[in-house]
Amino acid sequence: MASQGTKRSYEQMETDGERQNATEIRASVGKMIDGIGRFYIQMCTELKLSDYEGRLIQNSLTIERMVLSAFDERRNKYLEEHPSAGKDPKKTGGPIYKRVDRKWMRELVLYDKEEIRRIWRQANNGDDATAGLTHMMIWHSNLNDTTYQRTRALVRTGMDPRMCSLMQGSTLPRRSGAAGAAVKGVGTMVMELIRMIKRGINDRNFWRGENGRKTRSAYERMCNILKGKFQTAAQRAMMDQVRESRNPGNAEIEDLIFLARSALILRGSVAHKSCLPACVYGPAVASGYDFEKEGYSLVGIDPFKLLQNSQVYSLIRPNENPAHKSQLVWMACNSAAFEDLRVLSFIRGTKVSPRGKLSTRGVQIASNENMDAMESSTLELRSRYWAIRTRSGGNTNQQRASAGQISVQPAFSVQRNLPFDKPTIMAAFTGNTEGRTSDMRAEIIRMMEGAKPEEMSFQGRGVFELSDERAANPIVPSFDMSNEGSYFFGDNAEEYDN
């Protein structure tokens, strides 16, 4: 993207840094990872977990959730003011799984939030270390993106479920800051804005008074975040219109849905970061690795190297396929839920299948599930090659597409044709070009129609051997075009429920 120079890199967003050079960025990201790792080690000690239990991804998720809940100030305040039966607002906890007599047992633990905050700050040299908290939120978000298709949420806001490739980060909490905003897809931002506008339509006082002023500035800020994701002048001009509207209503909703559809071809720039579970960072720190000293990046080879040398386990339900569970977590670790499966298959070195073909449910185990038949197995999170994460949407291309997802959002900077089903997408653009945004709409449609099938995206960008740390010898991959490109292809993934 041309304006790259004016933006802070995501590592800076990730670490609240002012302008830093590459070495400083690597050190501050490393410091953040160190903090998460030290916190995780301490929690495993508190909970008396064995090494194996500490490497269980379900335990990692519970521990991450506990610290996120302990620092969720708004919710904590709300819980104190609106006490609900049987919930102690000062405590947080969740299921911890232990191996007892050759069987997995679930144990519900409860801790004072104050105590968890103390352990977290102690692991982070006394700081609140917001960057580390956001990092864990993005890992949870990436896992949700890989596990669930947001059909219901899309339909509720009037969008087409086939636009799911635009929904990265749709389950990120509001408090995820600049680093969170960077990884949100165009569809996620559109959905947040539509929800806001709908509230304004239904509630006369939404934009009024002292609160209304705050609401208005939040609305304009979200519009600017979305505008910054678009790469064409016409899309940005249309966002200006939406932002400046005196009284946002149905016309703005129409414009936003139009823009979301246009992003299936004229893709937005959305950041991709490899955020790993805390149970990967903990053992690495415990083994003596100093992330701050060595430096770390979320968008280069580092996460690949770390996963190459990590042992992570997962509980497996009786009829689940461990290899499929591994694929789910591998995609989440690489922030690749909406990437082209052919690119992923090449990088991973084994075939990556669409969601609907995987015999696996989510990673988390519900409290009512029976533990008797639970097994555990090693997650295979290694890769054959590594590639640089991208934040450009890439230019655009036609490809055989599917009944489910009709476009992709690249996660890796790797040369390819970008699949999208042009006739299906263009069919949504018939007729409606009147109104105050008509010239911009016409211009956007013209650009979409001009998108050429034979153009290559990320020209000359390749993948790298894991021994090639400096990215000196790019390998331009070859793809098996007979395979499906979309992950949520004609899909039956479970729906995400809060």
Rank of each mutant, 00 (worst) to 15 (best):
A2N: 10
Q4C: 00
Q4I: 02
G5V: 05
T6V: 11
T6P: 03
S9G: 10
S9K: 10
E11K: 12
M13V: 07
E14R: 00
D16R: 09
E24G: 12
I25R: 01
R26H: 05
V29Y: 09
G30P: 02
I33K: 13
D34H: 01
I36S: 07
R38C: 13
R38P: 01
R38N: 07
F39A: 02
Y40V: 14
L47G: 07
L49N: 04
D51V: 00
E53V: 08
G54P: 07
G54N: 15
L56I: 06
Q58I: 07
Q58W: 07
N59L: 00
N59G: 12
S60G: 14
S60C: 00
S60T: 01
S60Q: 12
L61T: 00
E64R: 01
R65K: 08
M66K: 02
M66S: 06
A70N: 09
A70E: 02
F71H: 01
D72Q: 03
R75W: 14
N76D: 08
K77A: 03
Y78R: 03
Y78C: 06
E80N: 04
E81V: 00
A85H: 15
G86Y: 00
K87N: 05
D88E: 14
G93F: 11
Y97Q: 08
D101P: 00
K103G: 00
M105V: 14
R106P: 01
L108T: 08
V109R: 06
L110M: 10
L110P: 14
Y111M: 15
E114F: 00
I119E: 05
W120E: 11
W120K: 08
W120M: 08
A123V: 05
N124F: 06
D127K: 00
D128R: 12
A129Q: 03
G132E: 08
T134G: 04
T134Q: 06
M136P: 04
M137L: 02
M137C: 13
I138C: 07
W139Q: 08
S141F: 13
S141P: 14
S141K: 12
D145S: 10
T147L: 07
Y148W: 11
Y148G: 07
Q149H: 04
R152F: 08
L154Y: 04
L154W: 05
V155W: 13
R156Q: 13
R156C: 15
T157W: 08
M159S: 12
D160P: 14
P161L: 12
M163Y: 15
C164M: 06
C164P: 02
L166K: 07
Q168L: 13
Q168N: 02
G169A: 14
G169E: 07
S170K: 11
T171G: 13
L172T: 15
R175H: 14
G177P: 08
A178V: 14
A178D: 07
A181F: 01
A182S: 03
V183F: 02
V183M: 04
G185Q: 02
G185D: 13
V186W: 07
G187M: 08
T188V: 09
M189H: 05
M189E: 04
V190K: 10
V190T: 00
E192M: 10
L193I: 15
L193N: 13
I194E: 12
R195K: 14
M196P: 02
I197Q: 06
G200D: 03
I201C: 02
N202R: 00
N202I: 15
D203L: 04
D203K: 06
D203F: 10
D203H: 07
R204K: 08
N205A: 06
N205S: 03
W207P: 03
W207Y: 15
G209Q: 05
G212M: 06
K214D: 12
R216E: 10
R216V: 06
A218S: 04
E220K: 14
N224W: 10
I225F: 14
L226V: 09
L226I: 06
G228V: 04
G228D: 10
K229Y: 11
F230D: 10
F230W: 04
Q231Y: 04
A237E: 04
V242M: 13
E244G: 09
S245G: 07
R246W: 13
G249I: 06
G249T: 06
A251G: 12
A251M: 07
E252F: 11
I253A: 01
E254L: 12
E254T: 12
D255A: 03
L256K: 10
I257P: 09
L259S: 09
A260Q: 10
S262W: 10
L264K: 13
R267S: 14
G268R: 09
G268I: 08
S269N: 10
S269Q: 05
S269C: 03
V270H: 07
V270G: 14
A271V: 15
H272M: 11
K273C: 09
K273M: 09
S274K: 10
P277H: 05
P277L: 14
A278R: 14
A278V: 07
C279W: 13
C279N: 12
V280D: 12
Y281R: 13
G282V: 15
P283V: 00
A284F: 07
A284E: 09
A286K: 13
G288D: 12
D290A: 13
E292S: 00
Y296W: 12
S297P: 05
L298N: 05
I301R: 01
D302P: 05
P303S: 02
F304G: 02
F304W: 12
L306N: 08
L306P: 08
L307H: 13
N309H: 03
S310W: 02
V312N: 10
Y313H: 05
S314E: 05
P318W: 15
N321A: 01
N321W: 09
P322Y: 01
A323P: 01
A323F: 01
H324M: 10
K325Y: 11
S326H: 13
V329I: 00
M331W: 09
A332N: 08
C333F: 03
C333I: 08
C333L: 08
N334L: 15
S335Y: 12
E339I: 12
L341W: 12
R342D: 15
R342S: 07
L344H: 06
F346Q: 04
I347H: 09
R348K: 15
R348T: 02
T350N: 03
K351F: 08
V352H: 10
L358V: 14
S359N: 01
S359H: 02
T360R: 10
T360C: 06
G362M: 11
G362W: 13
V363T: 14
Q364F: 14
Q364R: 13
I365H: 09
I365R: 05
N370K: 03
D372L: 15
M374F: 10
M374P: 15
E375R: 03
S376L: 06
T378D: 09
E380H: 10
L381S: 04
R384G: 15
I388A: 07
R391N: 15
S392D: 09
G393C: 10
N395W: 14
N395K: 03
N395L: 07
T396K: 00
Q399L: 07
S402D: 02
A403T: 01
A403C: 00
G404E: 00
V408S: 01
Q409V: 00
P410L: 14
P410R: 06
S413Q: 10
L418Y: 10
L418A: 01
P419E: 09
P419Q: 05
F420G: 00
D421Q: 15
I425N: 09
I425A: 05
M426W: 03
A428S: 15
F429E: 03
F429H: 06
F429P: 03
T430F: 01
G431P: 06
G435L: 11
G435D: 11
G435V: 08
R436T: 01
R436W: 13
T437V: 01
D439C: 07
R441E: 13
E443N: 13
I444R: 02
I444D: 09
M447N: 04
M447Q: 02
M448N: 12
G450V: 14
G450D: 00
G450L: 00
A451W: 05
K452D: 09
F458G: 10
Q459P: 02
R461I: 12
R461T: 13
E465F: 10
E465N: 10
L466I: 07
L466C: 00
S467W: 02
S467P: 05
E469D: 02
R470Q: 08
N473A: 12
P474Y: 09
V476Y: 12
S482I: 01
E484D: 06
F489H: 10
F489P: 10
G490W: 11
G490F: 11
D491H: 06
A493F: 05
N498C: 05
